[in-house]
Design a protein around this nucleic acid. Sequence first.
DNA 1: AAGAAGTCCTGGGCGC
DNA 2: TGCGCCCAGGACTTCT
Length: 303
Amino acid sequence: MPELPEVETTRRGLEPRIRGRRILRVELSLPKLLKAAPAGGLKSAEGRCILGLRRRAKHLWMDLEGGLTLCIHLGMSGQLTWWDPALPDSPGFLRHRHTGLQKTAGQHAPDAHTHLLLHLQGGGRVQYRDPRQFGALRLLPTAGLERTPPFAGLGPEPLEPGFTAQGLAERLKARRSPLKALLLDQAVLAGVGNIYADEALHASGLHPLRRGSSLRPEEASALWQSLRRALRQGIRLGGSSISDYVNAEGRRGGNQEQLKAYGRAGLPCLRCGTRLKRIQVVQRSTVFCPRCQRSSGGSSRKA
DNA sequence: AAGAAGTCCTGGGCGC
DNA sequence: TGCGCCCAGGACTTCT
């Protein structure tokens, strides 16, 4: 599931290849992905130069000349890749696990799940592939983008210097929801999803059902630090490839092998050896260590 | 107003 | 070998 580190990895891989290039033609084969656009639809992007690629939360913002920005959200299975006409295509997605074969690395030709192509001047194209179709495309005015729905309500960027432990504590202390729900709430802080929420809670020794209002200042500080560490590590290792995620070159990340909680239910905790438990919190699978992440620790209540 | 629940969608894993 | 069931989940909408 592309969260902040995966989206940032995609941005870093793609931006140098597309900045300063002109979009010649746009092909959108799944129109329902387009949630907002001028009257001309995505055709309005044709002929415009790409000025840069920014990230806000889990969104990618492709700034175009003439004051428009193509906003891309990868949903949970979105892949935004660069296709180079000079390179060979990989043979495809091979069966893995039982056979020991991996998904082949490298660029892939468009298939039935490729919903958007941006053909650039001079050859090459940006490809958007999204098997589960949870992604979203928007073509919006660049000016005031931060104040435009659905971006207006986003919380702070957890890796920005302005995001402090005190700031996180402030945001959590008025809330009675479970920590897990608060970390997933993009209005509380932006860019965290199920993987990094579980990792940060495990690293900070906090039970996912602890209520935000129950945190002592030092616990909020620990969570702040764990969160930033988990996100930074995710970026450093090129993201977590759990199901579909690949970077701009079509390659898998390396962080999935470093995860200590997410996806490890029933396996021993890497810190204390206790079997990790899985519970549901706000309809999301949540893995934690019943020993390292105790629900007590002050004023929390059983939920 | 915060919080809970329903919705979209398809590939993969599993049981039979 | 193959069918069908169920799960995974980001964020929007709807409801209490």
